[in-house]
Amino acid sequence: MTLRRLLLSMLVAAMVVVSCTSGQNGGENVNVDTSYAVEMASTWHYAGAPQRVQVGILASDANGIRPVTQGAIDLEFSYLGADGSGEPSAGPTATATYIPVPGTDASGDVPAIVTGANGIYEADAVSFDDAGLWRTTLSIEIDGVPRRLTTDFRVDAESGIPAPGMPAPKTETLALDSKNVEDESVDSMAAGGDPIPDPELHEWTIGAAIEQSRPALVLFGTPAFCTSRFCGPEVTEIQRLAVDHPDRAVYIHVEIWKDYDAQTVNKGAAEWLLRELPDGTPQMTEPWLYLIGSDGVIADRWGPLFDSADVAAALEALPPMEA
């Protein structure tokens, strides 16, 4: 099974080549003939509802491939028709702010290449009127040079995976007390015989939380095998949110892989995230973070990254749970 991985296979050949003068850019020298590419980080966009849009920007030069981080960028969206053959028709515009991988540097005010920083840019409440192929055009200034980058993406008539306003699938995800499963199927960080490092995130199943009318904050991700390097820091951040907001929800980490070597996906992750494209190709994107209300309805979702302050505000908007 081939799963689409995010922000990794941005091939240099697909990048928009931009020549720039050497100079200082957020603490790093930017060399001549640096190439830049923008790609969609978020997936499963759908028409008719406000949603988050996340994009990643990578720079490639003699020093390798590095993310552009910090600050904010402007996005313009245009509709290319149901099959992408139409002339671009102007759509919404938005400002996308930088969202760091938890624990990485987010101190800069302008887009730059910063050692140790990693993340994406997120625009909130973007609505697409029609299903089909869309284009985002990104305006950014790096090292004093303005640039415009584009990438195309699909918008479906409906979300292909669970979305806000939908009833949450009452999935019996794996937990600490699940029978006849390996620990690494519950949490990939237990591979090789290590103990599960976050047992407090594996006490509840999604189904049990819904059955008992408990709000749930659910992270789908595979910290040991996450090629984007988002999942591990996000698990740690969910642990922190659980400590800071213990009475607002139960906190659940759903491991993606039942057996990574055999490329077998856990049933719970597959029910939520594994889909088949029109050409028959299986697709799963992760990580995803879901907030499920006490009524069993999805209140919000974030992916692949989330703004911790945004999630904390959503948790605090919930009434305290009864003991």
Rank of each mutant, 00 (worst) to 15 (best):
T285A: 09
Y98S: 06
V155K: 00
A13Y: 08
N118D: 13
R214G: 01
E276R: 12
S294A: 15
P319Y: 00
R240C: 05
S60K: 11
D194L: 13
T137H: 02
F225Y: 09
G144R: 02
V38S: 08
L277Q: 13
E322F: 09
A125S: 15
L174K: 06
L201W: 01
A41P: 15
D129F: 00
D83T: 02
E237D: 08
D130S: 03
P111I: 01
P246A: 04
D310G: 03
E28K: 10
P223C: 01
H202L: 07
P233W: 00
A41N: 13
D247T: 13
P67D: 02
W257M: 14
A62C: 07
V243L: 12
F153I: 02
V16C: 08
Q51L: 06
P162Q: 09
E237N: 04
P92L: 00
G268T: 02
N31D: 15
Y79E: 02
S22F: 06
N118K: 09
N180Y: 00
A323V: 11
G91M: 05
A163F: 03
A191E: 15
A49P: 02
P169M: 10
S85P: 09
P164E: 09
E184G: 10
V126Y: 00
L138Q: 04
G303W: 03
E122G: 12
S107V: 13
K258Q: 15
D177R: 10
E141R: 07
V18F: 05
V110P: 06
V30S: 07
A117G: 12
L291R: 09
N118R: 07
K267H: 01
D187N: 13
L133T: 06
V68Y: 04
T150W: 05
T21F: 07
Y98H: 02
Q283K: 11
P320T: 11
R147A: 01
E76C: 05
T264E: 15
Y79N: 01
M321N: 01
I99E: 09
M166W: 07
P197W: 11
L80N: 01
V297G: 12
G221Y: 00
N118W: 03
S78I: 06
G84C: 04
L3D: 13
M284C: 08
A191Q: 12
E276K: 06
D109Q: 14
D74H: 12
L219P: 05
I142H: 04
T151P: 15
D183E: 13
G91D: 03
E122C: 13
I161R: 05
G303F: 12
K267T: 14
S60T: 11
S89D: 13
I120W: 00
M321D: 05
D105H: 04
V68E: 10
W272K: 10
Y98W: 02
G280E: 13
L133V: 11
E28I: 06
I73Q: 09
F225A: 11
L138I: 14
V265C: 07
S159D: 03
E184C: 13
Y121H: 09
Q24N: 08
A309F: 04
P146A: 01
G293W: 03
T136A: 06
A270T: 05
V17G: 13
D156M: 05
P111N: 02
E141L: 04
A163Y: 06
V18R: 07
V181I: 10
D33P: 11
A312N: 06
V101E: 06
R214E: 07
E184W: 03
P319A: 07
W134Y: 08
A191T: 12
L7I: 14
A72N: 11
